[in-house]
Design a protein around this nucleic acid. Structure first.
Lengths: 207, 207
DNA sequence: ATTATCTATAGATCTATAGATAATGC
DNA sequence: ATTATCTATAGATCTATAGATAATGC
């Protein structure tokens, strides 16, 4: 009972967020119970409403954390890599955040779309920023860049949240590595085609 | 109480399936209650377990119906249309089955992938059939065709289950019609590029 | 003193079954 | 006779709150 010796409340909060991300990713909002999340985080269920108000508040905190992470990723992409390498880097980033992306994709599909808050505060700016960046980097119109970003975003989210076995079946290959190579290759070709550049193109400037 | 005068049990079953498809599409498995579905279908909750065993049985029936519908669609696609027109027809087909597709997409994401039964009995055959059809129709290798089918399937499912407003934001246009045109255009270009054909290409034979 | 956590539980909700009854069709 | 449907409800869950208590930090 009472406080846990030596454990900072902020650590509890963080552990709960991690546990909640995994649990919401696996089971969705309603099927994830506070008890499961709490168990995973090493506390009891009542601690969750204490920190996050209620279950929805915890869920919102998870979603916000993923978007913040995404916004922080954009600027790291500049440099001298070929377009194909950029696509690979994006996919690698997504692979490391499989759970978070699955939560986002679920939330989009569960609510029938982005809720207004997310669409206006998150998706809009993220799309705008990325399209401008890509557009100026590869010297193509912003609309073209946006079209490409939207298309590849959908593909990345779907492929990365698929089970590796399902991607193997999809591409008719045997190992997860082969499937990954197919995925990145297809996305690089599709993206380059939509931009009207070669997959080997390197951007003009490194903004 | 008792039977409903003049109503065939098969009609009840069908009404329940339609109501369940819409309700599962909107709310997912756990958040759709038997009471909601029953209300929509004009019966009471207890009628559902009677017809479908339990809630999961009802859900499975919904999923199966969508896949059966999908399998029946393939053969209607032959003809003399251009590739772009085929893409448009596929998208139109999907638009009319938004709820069913949303259920499928949810089920994929909710379970972390296709369950074995669906992957082996449904997805495999559907992919194989479509890839062969497309491959021979446009004279390209089956692997290429498969890659294209997988990619466009993901895009169709995501775009069609998105709210029209979200697609407008995505493409930066004002009306749902404009967004639809962008979607079909992008998919036609992407698909043609992956097949190495022109969007205007017409198939060789009408098998 | 205040904060973070626990235990216990009230209240809400939802599924599936049991038992009653009305329509159907042999 | 049999089948399809309804009413009522037991049993299972799950969330969020109330009240107790142990650690923290001024």
């Amino acid at each position: 009972m009472g406080r846990i010796k030596g454990r900072k409340p902020e650590e509890t909060r963080e552990a709960v967020l991690v546990a909640a991300t995994a649990t919401f990713a696996e089971r969705g909002f309603s099927n994830a119970t506070l008890g499961m999340i709490a168990g995973r985080a090493g506390v009891t269920a009542a601690t969750l409403p204490y920190h996050f108000g209620d279950k929805q508040g915890l869920y919102d905190a998870v979603v916000d954390a993923v978007y913040r992470d995404l916004v922080a990723f954009g600027p790291t992409l500049g440099g001298t890599k070929s377009f194909a390498q950029v696509v690979d880097a994006v996919y690698a980033w997504a692979e490391e955040r499989r759970d978070g992306i699955r939560v986002i994709l679920r939330s989009i599909i569960e609510t029938g779309g982005l809720d207004t808050r997310v669409r206006e505060l998150r998706m809009g700016p993220v799309l705008d920023g990325m399209s401008r960046l890509i557009g100026s980097h590869y010297g193509v119109a912003v609309e073209k860049a946006r079209e490409m970003v939207v298309t590849l975003t959908h593909l990345v989210m779907r492929f990365v949240t698929n089970r590796p076995e399902d991607n193997c079946v999809a591409f008719g290959v045997k190992t997860a590595e082969q499937a990954r190579a197919c995925i990145v290759d297809v996305m690089a070709r599709v993206g380059a085609d939509l931009l009207g550049i070669s997959p080997d193109a390197r951007g003009a400037k490194a903004d």
